[in-house]
Design a protein around this nucleic acid. Sequence first.
DNA 1: AAAAATACGACAATTGTAATCGGATTTCCA
DNA 2: TGGAAATCCGATTACAATTGTCGTATTTTT
Lengths: 135, 135
Amino acid sequence: MIKFSRKIEYGILALQYIALNPERVVSAKEISERLGIPFEFLSKTLQQLMKKNLIISQQGLKGGYVLSKKAKDISLMDVINALEGNASIVECFILKNGLSCERLENCSIRNPMTKIQSKLTKVLNATTLEEVVNG
Amino acid sequence: MIKFSRKIEYGILALQYIALNPERVVSAKEISERLGIPFEFLSKTLQQLMKKNLIISQQGLKGGYVLSKKAKDISLMDVINALEGNASIVECFILKNGLSCERLENCSIRNPMTKIQSKLTKVLNATTLEEVVNG
DNA sequence: AAAAATACGACAATTGTAATCGGATTTCCA
DNA sequence: TGGAAATCCGATTACAATTGTCGTATTTTT
């Protein structure tokens, strides 16, 4: 199965919700209740997005989040990178202890996979939050 | 993280290995040893591919597997479908009990995700085993 | 000072993947 | 014709990653 993790789904949904309410600060609680996403988990996700400068947080009463830039300047790839830092479609692209997989000599799978990887990355880079918001 | 499962990786690697030895029947044991893939797990994977008619099995001593069609007629999508039957990039595309997700009314994420999904599917459909074999 | 929000580390639960086990069947060949 | 080597296949276990929870500290507004 090839699919986005919950975290990424939640992240995209939350960003979409925030983007739809640009005139105000939106709290995690509100997003959580409206979209039916576990509050604590969502909070963690939003904090990650904040650390990666995709959103700005305001603490305290009446606090919450706003986008740090325009929806058209946030790509799905940005979100994935912020939340997981890795969109490698094949295991062996992920270095372990700085080493690549041990199957290398018998593995001519890398090159064609690289092509698929780059095509996918291209799509994710090209798709912005604005597109997601506007269906 | 977006990545192929081990099963799919193993499946592609095995098909590649079989495709590289078109003149003979290749046993699961040989593939397992050469590529460092757990024998039992690989066997299951090959059996699945056999049931979906991507390879032909020959039982008994000197048994093993051969491709059932030309490498250029097997796409990565075929492999994924055979092994998991689902390449949905977003959870809500996967129907549960015939129902879609409960977030529908607040969810305008479906449409843009469908676009990404179809782009990905296109790439996977267009990439054949032959391409994988020839790097 | 109280209320409502974020921040954050640690932990628990769940789930799906990955791997193993046990045994059955098929086929070849000495 | 019997043993070896292979596929076949259901059941079960092991494991890891994801997902979710808890408790507490901190920030900010009223």
